[in-house]
Amino acid sequence: MARKIVITGGKGGTGKTTVCANLGIALARLNFRVLLMDMDIGLNNLDVVMKVEDKVVFDFIDVVENRCRAGQALIQDEAEPTLYVMPSCHSAKRQVTADAVKKVISRLSDTFDYILLDCPAGIDVGFRRAINCADEAIVVVTPHLSGVRDADKTITQLTANSVSVNVVVNRVRGDLVASGEMLSAFEVFGLLGHTALGVIPENDDVNCNVDLHACRKPFDVLARNLTSGSYDMYDCVSRYKGVFGRLKRKFKKNV
C-alpha cells in the first residue's frame, strides 16, 4: 500500500511543485516506486517541471472520466525507471470529485510505495479535493511572514481533516538568516508546530530548472527523513557565519 502524501502550502508559488518533483526523484533514487500526480486542474505544471510535457497523451481527468486506463496516463521518467508522472490538464468538463480521484489512486496504490499529490494553491475546491485523497501532508512554506501565516491556516484545515502534517521550509537564504533579516527554518518550525521534515535553500539550479538532478543534497536529506523518520536538517546558514561568512554575505547581497 502506497503512502499517499499531498504536497500543499496555502500560498501560491511556495515551491509545492518543485518539492514534489525533486522529492519524487530523491525517493526513486532510494529505489522506491513513486508516482507524482498533478492535482492542479487548470494551472498544471508538474509535467513541465518533470520535463515530460511533450509526452502527455492521457491525463488523470481522462482516467477519472473513463476514457483510458490508469496505466495509460502514466509517464515514466527517463532517468529514474521507478518514477512515474500522472499529468493533469487545463480544464475538466464535469466537476471532478475527491471520491473519483480516490478510486483512481486506490487502483494504483499497490503498484507504488509513494504517491505524491501536487496540490494547487489556496484552500478551496482543488485543495479540498487533494487533501481528501491523502493521509499525510507536506506543507511547503517559505520563510516570509505572509507564507507562514497562510501555511498556518492550511495546517488548521489539514488537521481538521485528520491529515498528518509535515513541514518543509523552502527558499531559505542562508545569508539573510545569518544576518537576522530572514526567519530561520527552525523559527518557522517553532511557529507552525508539527513534524519538521526538511529545509531547502534558495538555489539557482532549482530556480532555472535546467537539471533537476543538480541540486540533490537537500532533497536527498528530505527523502531520508520521510522514509526513515530521521531528523536531519540541511544546513545552509553556517557557511555565512564568522568572519569569512560575513564577507560572503556582503558579496552575495551586492550581486
Partner: peptide, 8 residues
Amino acid sequence: PSDNYNRA
C-alpha cells in the same frame, strides 16, 4: 526571538 518571529 527576532522581530520577524514575534510578528509572525
